[in-house]
């Protein structure tokens, strides 16, 4: 049933396939982020409670929600790599981790610069902020565990186990605002009486999707480099290295 997939599990094929996707994904991500950000910054109505400071939402919410999605993506890749011993999945997980860590960092910093004018403080130790910080630590743990093994096959497995164990944190972040009384705003409602007006919601959704596409593009760029680094002994990589590397 899955036979048609097998040729793509070959490193060289995956490398070429990723190379075909990257330009399209990058163009799409750039267009979406430009549209969403300009729409949000210039054309969205000012919030009647928060004034113009709410415009941070157009980078904060996409980063926060995609930091979780990227973690889930990494954990799924790690799981596939562990269970079916597919090296490409291991490399994918290792490529997502640094991208996810930076996105989590962005979510934390933008949240903090939004918190200062709204709550009067850069940081509060409430459930959502703390668990997002834990998410950053988990990303950093996965990255440094992967880096500390000489043998990268073992490194990927060890980091994969850690990534899967850390998935428990994701529902805690997602529902922390609904479970605990928190200073943090509730989750955004798409429908109903308290729904966001479409002029705010549409650019926000565009930016969320744009962040997702951008993470995919960056992960694929790293994924290609990872394939090369892990296959340094293969003839096709050596040819490529001698064609491009010696300058």
């Amino acid at each position: 049933m899955w036979k048609w997939l097998h040729p793509y599990a070959e490193p060289q094929r995956a490398y070429q396939l990723a190379g075909k996707f990257i330009p399209w994904l990058s163009i799409l991500a750039t267009l979406m982020l430009l549209t969403g950000t300009i729409w949000g910054m210039v054309f969205s109505p000012t919030d009647y409670q928060q004034g113009d400071s709410y415009r941070i939402i157009f980078v904060h919410v996409p980063a926060a929600s995609m930091s979780m999605s990227a973690y889930i993506g990494m954990a799924i890749a790690a799981f596939i790599g562990l269970v079916w011993q597919i090296k490409l999945a291991d490399w994918m997980a290792a490529s997502i981790a640094p991208v996810g860590a930076v996105i989590t960092f962005i979510a934390l910093v933008t949240g903090s610069t939004w918190g200062k004018p709204m709550w009067g403080t850069w940081w509060v130790w409430d459930a959502r902020l703390t668990s997002e910080l834990v998410l950053l630590f988990l990303y950093l743990g996965v990255i440094s565990l992967y880096a500390s093994f000489e043998d990268k096959v073992l490194a990927a497995r060890a980091a994969g186990i850690l990534a899967i164990v850390g998935v428990i944190n994701i529902p805690i972040i997602k529902y922390s605002v609904d479970w605990w009384n928190s200073l943090h705003q509730g989750s955004i409602k798409m429908t109903g009486k308290t729904a966001m007006p479409p002029d705010m919601l549409v650019p926000l959704v565009i930016n969320i999707l744009g962040f997702g596409v951008m993470i995919a593009a960056l992960s694929l760029v790293r994924f290609r480099a990872e394939i090369l680094a892990r296959n340094g002994m293969r003839p096709w990589v050596r040819e490529l290295a001698q064609a491009e590397g010696v300058k």
């Binding site: 933008t110 340094g232 491009e244």
Partner: peptide
């Protein structure tokens, strides 16, 4: 917040793109 967000994204993108040539040079 926009400066830090897009600044760190820029650095990340830079590192991601140059990583391939660094790996190839090493090999």
């Amino acid at each position: 917040s926009y400066g830090i967000a897009y600044g760190s994204l820029g650095i990340l993108i830079g590192f991601c793109i140059t990583r391939k040539s660094r790996v190839l040079k090493e090999i």
